[in-house]
């Protein structure tokens, strides 16, 4: 049995497998399928300061190798999450989670982070900077280095927990962004959020989703996400969580070879709710077959 335990900025995990934000709710939706305690951790549904109802349906469509979503950050708001949902979550998960902090203004991010910072069950604040900045013409925080770093600095002021920034592939120069985020105090990076995409109805010619565009995820984006991790890794000294289209144990190894210290898995949970226990088992076997004694040894192997 290989050693699969990893440590992300002090957050101990049994293995490097983390269901990604937005695909795992607050942990309760998978109770019918398996015990969440087999997981390294999970990232909670993107949480904003105020409750949000999200976008109109249809919010979902698919392509041959995955799906698109435009849920629009539906969530009950940081106060309700902290007061009502976290106590339930603690009943089903013994470890710590990544609290995905989303927002539409610098102040909104900081206040949301301050509320979630006070919770023991939160091991890492995961800053989702893919959201549009309502005060900045609607452009995503994550596409502009200055606004992304401003959000990060303000969040860092209100928390002592590690802050990992979840970047968007829409960022025109991701390496430059990640270097700047590290300089501005990021404790880690999550690479990446979904790629923007669209599908059209074959009968009407119109967009399928009410919101027109959505985030592309699933196995079809794996090589691109892997490449971004590979590209960024040599330029930063903070841990990277690799995320994007992982569907099997060998994908986890590739992500870690490219430079990831752990991985987030999203769409796979939705299409195959039983896959996490299987994939952790498969990861163990694969490491044994490849003679990997400690999974931490393989981080960044592609660059050595």
């Amino acid at each position: 049995m290989a050693k699969l335990t990893v440590n992300l900025s002090g957050m101990e995990m049994k293995n490097p497998v983390i269901p990604a934000s937005g695909t795992f709710g607050y942990g309760m939706d998978y109770l019918d399928f398996y015990d969440a305690n087999i997981l390294g951790s999970f990232s909670i549904k993107g949480t904003t300061l105020d409750p949000r109802e999200g976008n109109q349906i249809p919010r979902i469509c698919e392509y041959d190798y995955g799906m698109l979503n435009s849920v629009g950050l539906q969530n009950p708001g940081a106060h309700e999450v902290a007061e009502k949902i976290f106590p339930q979550m603690k009943q089903v998960f013994d470890g710590q989670v990544l609290a995905n902090v989303s927002g539409f203004s610098v102040e909104g991010y900081a206040e949301c982070a301050r509320i979630l910072d006070q919770e023991d069950v939160v091991g890492i604040l995961e800053l989702n900077i893919s959201c549009p900045n309502v005060h900045g013409g609607g452009a995503s925080f994550g596409t502009d280095v200055n606004t992304a770093c401003e959000v990060l600095r303000e969040v860092k002021k209100v928390t002592r927990k590690p802050v990992y920034v979840k970047c968007t592939p829409q960022c025109p120069d991701l390496v430059k962004m990640c270097i700047a985020l590290e300089e501005n105090g990021a404790d880690g990076l999550v690479l990446l959020n979904t790629f923007l995409g669209i599908r059209l109805d074959i009968r009407t010619g119109k967009p399928i989703m009410k919101n027109v565009t959505g985030g592309v995820s699933g196995p079809g984006i794996f090589p691109q996400a892997l490449y971004k991790v590979y590209q960024v890794y040599p330029h930063v000294h903070i841990p990277i969580i690799g995320c994007g289209g992982i569907s099997k144990a060998s994908d986890i190894l590739e992500m870690m070879y490219a430079g990831a210290s752990a991985v987030e898995i999203g769409t796979l949970n939705l299409t195959d709710p039983m896959r996490m226990p299987e994939i952790i088992e498969e990861l163990n076997e694969l490491c044994d077959n490849l003679g990997i004694k400690d999974i931490n040894e393989i981080i960044g192997r592609a660059h050595r």
Partner: peptide
């Protein structure tokens, strides 16, 4: 009915007001 992501409540893809 509507387009669904997961079908068991995790993705919020079929939430309506």
């Amino acid at each position: 009915e509507t387009r669904m992501g997961c079908g068991f409540g995790a993705c919020m893809g079929c939430s309506v007001r």
